[in-house]
Simulated scan of single mutants.
Amino acid sequence: MTYFGIGVSTAVSAVSDALDRAVQADRGGLDLITVSDHPYHADRLDAYAELGVLLGRTERVSGLVSVTNLPTRPASVLARTVTSLSALTGGRIVLGMGVGGLWDDIARLGFPKLAPGQAVRAFEEGIRLVKMLGGGGGPVTFEGEFHQVTNLEPAAAEMPPVWTGSVGPKSLAVTGRVADGWMPGHAADWLSERYRTSRPLIDKAAVDAGRDPAEIATVYNFPGRITAEPLRRTRDGDGRWIGGSPAQWIEELTGAVLEHGAAGFVLFGPGGSAPDEVATARWAEEIVPAVREAVAK
């Protein structure tokens, strides 16, 4: 499956727009709506509170927190949140997980700062634990360095796929060992140096763990303008995607799937802004159906 989605604003001042875009994405046949997780900012909505409301307003589209700030959300409670959303929505949820990076902000919330190596180890433990806490089965006892549960019964709902936002070599290796998908950081795409140097680390770790690297999807956050007329250049001097006409987007994304194995795209506006109503309509009504059709052929 190739996923197509949009990023939705988490700004408190943009609640109406967020609700409208989620409904538009749902009615337009998109697969995903995504929100970011920055609980230390008072002008942002809590990611899971927002996602719950957005999923409640929609019928088909799935939701993803891209990515969950794991240091501020204990893995065992996060598992309960996600399996609850899965049960409430008929499985319309993907679990995004991150190491955490803004440690001064995390500390202001009252959570301890972790050294880089500690953060990566806590990240891997967290993914392993949440995967144990869905799908029923016997009680779980987990005695990790950072996460511990005792005789905890898993939820009956299946744990959804886990996608990461790994950036550093050690966290990329964690993705290869235990995750189901990867969203490259900093809006890197399949032609970027970041992708070329990062994806092989995921693949090697997967092979070393006895996994098939092809089972780990790569889904891109992909900002750009959708213009009425073609642009002379669709990428800037550094090779970063600028955007273009629907036909130019269709050609670019079809090639990404067929030639580079891309598993999905989440549309953002220029600079990582949430796409507006017009861009979302062009994405859902013109670009996405054409890419799906071209890939199916």
Score class of each variant (00 low, 15 high):
146 F>W: 07
11 A>I: 10
9 S>T: 13
162 V>K: 08
252 E>P: 01
174 V>L: 12
216 I>C: 05
203 D>S: 13
63 G>D: 13
292 R>E: 13
231 L>E: 15
275 P>V: 06
33 I>W: 07
267 L>E: 00
13 S>M: 11
233 R>E: 02
10 T>K: 07
111 F>Q: 09
190 W>R: 07
198 S>R: 06
102 L>M: 15
238 D>R: 12
182 W>R: 11
62 S>K: 14
236 D>P: 06
224 G>D: 04
15 V>D: 07
77 V>L: 15
215 E>T: 15
157 A>G: 00
230 P>K: 01
73 R>L: 05
107 A>L: 11
214 A>G: 11
34 T>R: 03
261 G>N: 09
26 D>H: 04
193 E>I: 14
237 G>L: 09
75 A>H: 04
289 P>I: 01
106 I>H: 04
158 E>S: 04
122 A>V: 02
81 T>C: 12
95 L>E: 13
137 G>V: 13
64 L>R: 00
87 A>T: 12
236 D>S: 08
166 S>R: 08
77 V>A: 14
266 V>M: 12
115 A>Y: 14
69 N>P: 00
23 V>A: 09
256 A>H: 06
86 S>T: 15
253 L>W: 04
288 V>D: 06
130 V>H: 04
50 E>N: 06
73 R>S: 05
104 D>K: 03
62 S>V: 08
140 V>D: 08
197 T>M: 10
68 T>W: 03
6 I>W: 08
118 Q>R: 08
75 A>R: 05
36 S>H: 09
257 V>L: 01
200 P>A: 03
26 D>E: 05
151 N>T: 02
197 T>W: 06
204 K>N: 05
104 D>S: 08
212 D>P: 10
